[in-house]
Amino acid sequence: MGREKPVLKVGGRPMLLRVYGEAEKVGEVLVAVSRNAPKTRELCLREGIPIVETPGRGYVEDTLFLLREFGPFLSVSADLPFLKASDVMAIGEAFDGRTSLTGVLPLDRVPKDLHPLTYRGYAVIGLNAVGTEGEKFFELSNPLLALNVNTPGELKLAGRIARLVEKPFKAFRELHGGG
């Protein structure tokens, strides 16, 4: 997209802050950054978000680096603006600490306007549990996880969805003293 995706805004907030805020509700979160993401690092430092440096040689290499450094862990992409804490909790509860879990959505749960990466009849989601002994799919239920922001069109769609989904809840909270 020509820019670091984690710092792009959806609903007025950088996607990284949206994802971090939900993941943090479940447990300790470290943001993996490399020399390839200086604006993401800057955002984390400004917001007081803990980071871990990776070699920056690619997703697979960085994931293996993190596995060697920390052992099994949950991984979530910063470009999933509609991730919920319950999504992270669900995969975390199913993770046995050994077998990797790839988060997926059945295609019948994917909204019609979205065209996610598909494999074996599922939409592959950027929420995973990284283990050391094999891999299996883990079905998630949040249909908005299918919106992994990879293009300017998807960023625009995420902005429209954020306005539709979040404003009613914000207005409700304000009316009922929730700020």
Rank of each mutant, 00 (worst) to 15 (best):
R120G: 00
P116C: 08
G131N: 02
Y119E: 11
P116I: 04
R120I: 00
H115E: 09
E133L: 14
H115M: 07
P116T: 01
Y122N: 11
L140S: 09
P143I: 14
F138P: 02
P116M: 03
T132N: 12
F137G: 10
E135R: 03
L117Q: 08
F138E: 03
L144P: 03
P143V: 13
V124H: 11
L144R: 15
G126V: 01
L145G: 13
H115Y: 04
E135H: 05
F137M: 10
Y119G: 00
A129C: 11
A129E: 03
L140C: 09
L117V: 09
P143Y: 10
T118H: 10
V130N: 12
H115P: 00
A123R: 05
T132Y: 11
P116R: 03
R120N: 10
P116A: 06
E133P: 01
Y122K: 14
E135M: 08
L117T: 10
L145Q: 09
V130S: 13
G121W: 04
Y119M: 10
T132E: 14
L140N: 05
V130M: 07
V124M: 06
G134T: 02
N128H: 15
E139I: 08
N128R: 06
N142V: 03
T118F: 06
G121Q: 06
N142E: 01
K136R: 15
L144Y: 15
F138L: 06
Y119H: 12
T118W: 01
L117N: 07
T118K: 11
L140Y: 04
S141G: 10
H115R: 12
I125E: 06
L145I: 02
L140K: 05
L144W: 15
R120Q: 12
H115L: 13
V130I: 15
K136Q: 06
F137S: 09
G126S: 15
Y119S: 14
G131D: 02
H115T: 04
T132D: 08
V124Y: 05
A129K: 03
L127G: 10
P143Q: 11
K136D: 00
L144A: 13
P116V: 04
S141N: 08
E139A: 13
E139L: 15
Y122C: 12
S141M: 07
P116F: 10
L117K: 12
G126C: 09
T118I: 14
G134W: 03
L117A: 09
G131S: 07
T132C: 00
I125L: 12
R120K: 15
L117R: 12
G131M: 04
L140Q: 07
K136W: 01
I125D: 05
F138K: 01
N142R: 02
R120S: 12
Y122G: 10
A129I: 02
L144K: 11
L117G: 00
V124E: 05
N128M: 10
K136N: 00
L145W: 06
V130Q: 12
L145N: 13
E135L: 09
G131R: 01
Y122Q: 03
